[in-house]
Nucleic acid binder design. Structure first.
Lengths: 159, 159
DNA sequence: AGATTTCTGTCGAGATCGTCCAGCATTTTA
DNA sequence: TAAAATGCTGGACGATCTCGACAGAAATCT
């Protein structure tokens, strides 16, 4: 479904999405029309979801990041979800198993903003907020090569 | 520090990082050399952290995503952090305030892989794992315009 | 097995795009 | 007020991308 050349292309593009077709072609050993065609199909198939820029939130004044766990009160699940979606400072929200129904990431410019936003859902859900102090790993794609962690573990055991 | 034109450019690029200078220039009402210069400076200042592609993890076989809260045992904090960083399936990790020291995002291809990875830190930290069932909000940048939530809240109060 | 279709690739030409440079207007500094 | 600095425009040049025609390998069908 996804051959070595594709993975190779993706790896290069993750690092720099502006790499020219010519350069990509040279690095994977194809002609640029071929690369162009492969990219087109990767997009068509949804493998490449988007070409985008990563923006430093600090540059926009967001000095604070928090992870908020949200437990809607009985019957309020959909209202809470809608509310979260409509607050643009929530940059990410996952619906998860377990007691916490949602885990969301919040960007704010000040503690005051944080309080203001949490207030807006306080009467519909219980929340636990954790302020982010550091980011040991900042958003990276999972490994592109086929060897999953379990495979590597096996190899390690064998050696 | 960041004027309307810059924000406008960023907004367009977030949606499609491949938008040509010509197109960007047309949309913000500048010439392409000017846009080029602005982008160069946005990168130089670190506002634009990178041009990248967003890849669908499913296309790579990662059918499962989990959020793992990690509490290293006494004295194991650094070892645990190093361990997490070295496991590529952890695509994100934040160091937060509160009982949970780390909150991390994990991509795996199977429940077996999940178990295998968590086993590797089980003797050095307590973990709580929540499987992601759905993603109401998938990674979006915080609002680019200057009006923070608190400002809007004030407006709402006033009306 | 052999023929046909499909898929994936190359090459070259024309169109498009990005970059460099000279010059101009506006703002800042002395 | 004069001088310097900043940010912009337009045009020319070079590089890049895209399109069409065609070739070879793999898969499919008879």
């Amino acid at each position: 479904m996804l051959d070595d050349l594709d993975r190779n292309l993706l790896e290069i593009l993750v690092k720099d999405a502006r790499t020219s077709l010519k350069e990509l072609a040279a690095q994977v050993g194809l002609s640029s029309p071929s690369v162009s065609e492969r990219l087109r199909r990767l997009e068509e198939r949804g493998v490449i979801r988007a070409f985008t820029v990563e923006i430093d939130p600090l540059a926009l004044g967001y000095t604070l990041q928090a992870i908020v766990r949200i437990r809607p009160l009985p019957g309020k699940l959909h209202i809470v979800q809608k509310l979260i979606e409509d607050i643009p400072e929530f940059s990410e929200c996952d619906k998860v198993t377990g007691d916490d129904c949602f885990v969301a990431r919040l960007f704010v410019r000040s503690i005051g903003d944080l309080d203001g936003i949490l207030d807006r859902i306080a009467d519909k859900a219980e929340t636990s907020t954790a302020i982010i102090k550091a980011q040991p790993i900042r958003r990276r794609p999972p490994p592109l090569d086929a060897t999953a962690s379990r495979d590597r573990a096996k190899v390690l055991q064998a050696s």
